[in-house]
Structure formats: C-alpha cells, structure tokens
Design a protein around this nucleic acid. Structure first.
Lengths: 398, 398
DNA sequence: CTACTAATGATGGACTCCTTAATAACTCTC
DNA sequence: GAGAGTTATTAAGGAGTCCATCATTAGTAG
C-alpha cells in the first residue's frame, strides 16, 4: 500500500535518522546554537551535541564563532557545510549552452555561457557543453573531481534513461544517448531532463511559485513547452512524456507562435527571432492589427492552459520563456479567456528567474537527486561528504 | 524542502517505528511466522517477538494455530486483526445509494443498496443514506459505535471541506454541507469526495490498474467525469477541483453523451436511460448510423482523453461508468483516435469493478485516511485499536 | 567586583536492540 | 518406537542511544 515512511530498524538506524533530521534542519538555515537545534529536532541537548560532534567529525557540519552581545555564556554555533560538495546545472538550448556551478545549498558559485547555432552538429554542441563546464569549474576554482552530480536540461523529448528522442529546435538532437555521452565527459552521475520541466522546478523552489504544491509552468516562446509540479514533486509520467500538451491538435500550440510573426504586423526586415517581440510591443501600444494577432495567440494558448488547469487544479500557473518578457500584454488577455472556462481560477504569474530558469532548475534537480540518495529509507550509512558512487544502474527512483 | 521521511526521535519512537513497520508487513498478508516477520522487517528474532507480544496485548495482532506438517518445531503464527475496526464506504448517486461495510483490510463484510430518484429532495436522499448504512451495519452484525471512518463518494463538485457545490445529475445537491450533515449522522470521521475520484482509487488499488503509479480514470456515462491517480496518490488539486476536463469547451464532453441518443438511431419509445445502450448495441451489429454516432462520441471522448494523456503520461487509462459496459465497441475506436495524437500510448482498459467501483473506492479512501492517521511522522503513540477521535479540525492533510 | 544569565560538560539510569547458547517440539528414518 | 535431524522458542549478557540532572564555565549588567 503506497510508499512508507515508517522504516524502523536498528539502534544505529535511529542515530542515523536523528543525524539526517539534524542535517535537514541545518540545511539552508543560518548558523544555529545547540539549544535551537535541540528544539527543532525534538532531541535532548546532550544527544544533539553528540550527533553534531559526529557530523562535525565527518565534515558535514562546521563550527562558527559564537554570536557576541548575548546574555549568559555565548553559545557555540554550527552550520551546514554547503561547500562540502558541488554540483553543476547545464542548460542546453538551441542558441546557448549555459553552465552553473553550485554548492550543496544550491547557491550559484560560478556561471558561464557558450553560444551555438541551432543547426550545429552534435559534436559541436557537445564541445560547447564541455567548454562551458570547464570554464565554469575554472571560475569557481574547482575541478571535475569536485563534482557530485551534474544535471542537464535540454530541449526535446527525453526518455527516463536520458536519451533525447528528438528536438524540434535542435535538429541534430535526435535519438541521442545524451546521458551516456555526458556520462563519459563527467566523472559523476549525470541526469538529463527536459528543460521546461526543470524551469518549472526552479520556479517552485526559488521563483514566483515558491512553496506551491501544484504548479503548471508554461514555456511560451518560439517553441512551446510545459512543466508540471504535482504535490511538490516534478511530474515526469510513466514514460517521462508528461507535459506534452503541445501535441494536442485542438490547442494549435505548434503553430501558435506564428501568430506573433504575422507579416501583416511585422515589417519585412525584422529578423524572425525578433518578430514576436515586435508584435507584442506593438500590441502594448494598441496597434489594432497587433492586438488582433496577440488575441489569436492568446486564444490558442488558453486552450491548452485551460486543459491543464481543469485537469490539475494547480495553485498557480507560471509563464516563462521568451514571450513572458511581455507578460504585461499577454497575462490580462490569457486571464480573461481562462476565467470564462475554469472552475477555480489559479494564480497567474510571470516568471522572474528569466534566462537562468533552466540552469537553476537543473541545480535544484541535482539537489533533489542527492537528497533522495541521502534521505532514502534504505539509507546510506552515515559517512563523510564524498561524491556518491556513479550508479549507472537505476535511472531515478522517483 | 519537501516532506521528509527521516523523522528520528526517542528510543520509544524507534520501537513505535518497528511496531508500525511490523503492522505494515502483516497487513493484508496471510498469517506469518516470527522468522518470516523478522526477515521482512529486518529486525532480529527476539526483537520481533517482543514487538509482536506488545501488539498482541494491544489487540492489533492475534495468534493462529501453527501450520501442521512442517519440518522441525512448528512455528507460532500471527496475523493482523483486520476485524479490530470497521469502516464504511457509501456511494451517493442519482438513482442509487450504496453502502458497504469493510474491515481494516478493506474486505467487504456487508453491502446494501437503496433506490432514490434524481429529483428527490435532500432530506429523502439523506434518509436513503441513513437507511442503507443502518441496514448494512445490521447485515454485518455491527453498530454505529463500531465504525472508525465513513467515506462517501458523491456526484458533483466537492470542496476540500466536504461541501457539495453543485451536481449536474442531482439538482438538489447544491451548496450543501454534506460532510457536516453526515457528521451528525455517524459518530466518527466522515470524508466526502467526488465519486469519479474514488472510482479511480478503487481501480488502482484492486482493479485493472492495480499497482500503477499514474492512472487516468474516465467515467463515461450520461454524465462524464475523471479521476486522476498521480504518483500512487489520489490527486485533488489545490481547490479539490482537479479532473474537471469535462468543462473544456473544445472537448464537448458536456454534450457528447447526446451523440449516443441520436433520434436517427434510437427509436422513439426506448427510455432515455437505455438510449446509449441501444446505440452501442446497434454499433456492435454494424448498423451504419449507429456506428457514425458512436464515432462522433469517440471523437469528443478522445479530445479530452488526449489532453489528459499528453499532460500526465499515465501508465494506464481506465474506462468506467455505464458506457464502459460496451467497451468492446468503444475501446478500439478510442484507441485508434488516440494513437494519432499521443506521444506514448498508455494501456487502455475497461473497468472490471462495475457498479461497486465507487463504494470500493470509498473504502480504500477511508483506509488511506486511517493509514495517514496511524503512520504519520508525528505519529500516534502505540495504542490499542480504538476508533480514532473525531477531529473536525483539519479536513485532510494530503 | 558581584549578581545574574545561559550554555557547557559529566554522570548515571533507562530502554531497545543484537548475538549467542541452551532448550523444546515435531518429523523422518531405521 | 528410539534416535537423528530440523526448526522454533527461551533466556542471558552485552552494546548503543537517548534522557534527566547537576555542577561548572563564560559572558553581561550594574
């Protein structure tokens, strides 16, 4: 009957649970005193001390100077050593490859970008990834050996095993064992996931949808995409094909972006990648033809979005992707259309993370992967912070 | 960050975890020997014995005669006392009210049904519920006081608090505090949930979708409905309005059933409730007009279904509801339409639970509620099997 | 310098689990 | 039907983890 928290066991298991619970409390928080930690874990002071000592010895926790100016004897303070390990997020797009290096708390330490062309051959794009990663490590003063996990977000359909089936925006990205190829590039576990899904994750972890349990993320741009967070977790589906509402014929999402590149609105000479921006700007200035074009786009956008809202009843819908820079124009149009259809209207917000959305999501995804490794019920024995072994076996027990 | 299994604590907490883990192993399984239990929980034999003794003392577990004919000394055998408590599932429909009494393993002990009319006033339908429940208890030789939880599935939109906003098939069911009204009828916790959702739950727990993690359940009948199981759990959504794809205008689900009552196919004189059955039977016999009508229905059905599949990528789609009795006609039509659109085609099966679907789902829902109560991380202290207190407070921490 | 405050460190007791070894109950073979 | 073989039960000793309590320590306030 469903997955089960109540995992008892040995005495040492209890100690381990308490240690993990302590790490959990320390994570992300500022330095804390023993009393505070004892209060938050429910353990007694002496036990907390003992566990903290063990964790300090292992290198998970470090002591920081006591806070001055308090009454009584100054309390020793401890904090989680987020620099005990590092992970990397990579965003592989049609025009850019981004890499970001982060510590175990998800704080970005260094960031790089390499340009590529949509029609670049596979080898070139892989080289760009390698260069971006190497430069990023350099900037952060680290080496490959310091990486615990790499998570990669890419355009296209990604299988649970990390193969790219095909990508509309990167023609060469087709039936490609990306996880395998990158597995040879990095000496650690490499996770590959669809970019829209990772963007959705970033928005729920640190963006406008922070702390929401059910989120629909819409990537609206020259290519459309969706990412779903359900019950606080990234939803992949049985064959990792979730979120592909783009393919619903009745929603016309495949051709919808063309509405914003209507020759009746956009003068010849405007490069294709700026056409939508032009139309949206014109609509902002009440150009009638542009308004009509944007209206057509919003009509189509609203169909797929309504389907997602009616099915999932999310707390919030987040708009990301290139077009979301003109959310001031799009949001009201979308909202009015959705209100006609939706039983319960969710919050509707534009992304604030912008271009970094996918790399940040990749980092958050890597962190969740590590959390699963460390907090799993069938637990890792308490051990010093070292890079987890590269288990090429199971892709990801969700 | 996310909900956390690693909940450590006291020594007694460890004992409790082990006891719960033991109950979990015993649940649903046949009687087992100590060695078997020790093996499955990971505990040592002496510890297992001690915990079992405690649970036996509390009344959760009972000893059964040893299995004869084995080598060596016969092992004592223990089993979970499923009759330690009872719960009731109720299905409130337009034409029928069903009630079923079950033990803690979900085995149905007794079952009753009362007829009502769709236009019956609220008081009449409530009386039918009370009568069905009373008769059911009688049949099972129990009283109200033996009930731990009652779960009710009803047509219509149900809020997280158990109010019925409105129901298309039961006009009187409108802005009604059903949970409150029934709370006065039963001396225990009463849960109210949409019937299609409960049917979806039953199919995943004991029907054709057994053990699937992601399931889309389609209720197809004179009223359409959906229930979603995501990651093994019933998905309700932020405002408990999930699964209402019926409302998507482009899918035409509201009028779709009318296709099967086309006057060009159904002779006058056939009562409205049999019209669809007539059309489907005619289609089975290759009546051209009927085939066309069923084709139109399948077209509409496939739109909403495709939306759900593309978004969620379920492992399996289950067809339930009245029309699913003609699944042999409908399934192939639906499948061929979906195959044109879906990226990954899920399994497509007809329900086998039939009319009992909702009551069984209600029972499973009640069991999950109890499981949450007993296995929650902030745990109940180990206690004898008694009916949990009626906490009118929190509706349901999903 | 003294009183007050709050954290630290050390001791003893309680509880849970494990390992090991002796005992008990039943089947099978001769 | 007695003895060998097999498996479960029972009991005792040991180790690990947590808690409560109390004397001690290192600051601030007046």
């Amino acid at each position: 009957m469903s997955r089960m928290p109540p995992q008892g066991g040995d005495l040492s298991r209890l100690r381990q649970l308490n240690a993990l619970s302590l790490i959990k409390v320390l994570r992300g928080a500022e330095a804390a005193t023993l009393s505070a930690l004892a209060g938050r874990t429910g353990l007694s002071r002496p036990s907390t001390k003992e566990v903290i000592d063990e964790l300090t010895g292992l290198g998970w926790v470090e002591e920081v100077p006591p806070a001055p100016g308090t009454m009584g004897r100054p309390a020793r303070r401890y904090r989680f050593r987020a620099d005990g390990g590092h992970l990397m997020g990579v965003d592989v797009g049609a025009h850019n490859v981004r890499a970001a290096l982060a510590d175990l708390d998800g704080n970005v330490v260094a960031e790089t970008r390499r340009r590529t062309r949509p029609d670049a051959p596979v080898a070139d794009r892989l080289a760009a990834i390698e260069q971006a990663a190497a430069a990023c490590l350099d900037l952060g003063g680290l080496t490959m050996a310091d990486l615990w996990t790499v998570a990669v977000g890419t355009t296209g359909l990604v299988t649970p095993e990390g193969r790219v089936i095909m990508s509309a925006s990167v023609p060469a990205w087709r039936d490609l064992d990306l996880a395998g190829l990158l597995g040879g590039m990095f000496p650690c576990r490499v996770l590959v996931e669809n970019d829209s899904r990772l963007a959705a994750l970033a928005e729920t972890r640190r963006g406008v949808a922070r702390n929401a349990r059910d989120v629909v993320f819409l990537h609206i741009g020259r290519r459309m995409g969706t990412g779903l967070i359900i019950d606080g977790r990234l939803h992949r589906g049985f064959g990792a094909a979730a979120g592909e509402i783009v393919m619903l014929p009745e929603a016309h999402w495949v051709t919808a972006p063309d509405d914003l590149a209507d020759p009746a609105v956009v003068p010849t000479g405007v490069p294709p990648e700026d056409a939508a921006g032009f139309t949206l700007a014109a609509a902002r200035n009440n150009d009638p033809a542009a308004l009509e074009a944007v209206g057509r786009f919003a009509d189509k956008l609203s169909i797929g979005t309504a389907a997602a809202i009616l099915l999932l009843d999310p707390e919030i819908v987040v708009l990301g992707g290139g077009f979301s820079r003109s959310a001031d124009v799009l949001l009201p149009l979308l909202r009015s259309r959705l209100e006609r259809v939706c039983l319960r209207m969710p919050e509707l917000r534009a992304s604030t993370l912008g271009d970094e959305c996918v790399v940040l999501g990749a980092i958050d995804y890597a962190i969740e992967h590590l959390d699963r490794l460390f907090f799993a019920p069938d637990a890792p024995v308490l051990r010093p912070p070292v890079r987890p072994a590269v288990s090429t076996a199971v892709p990801d027990p969700a």
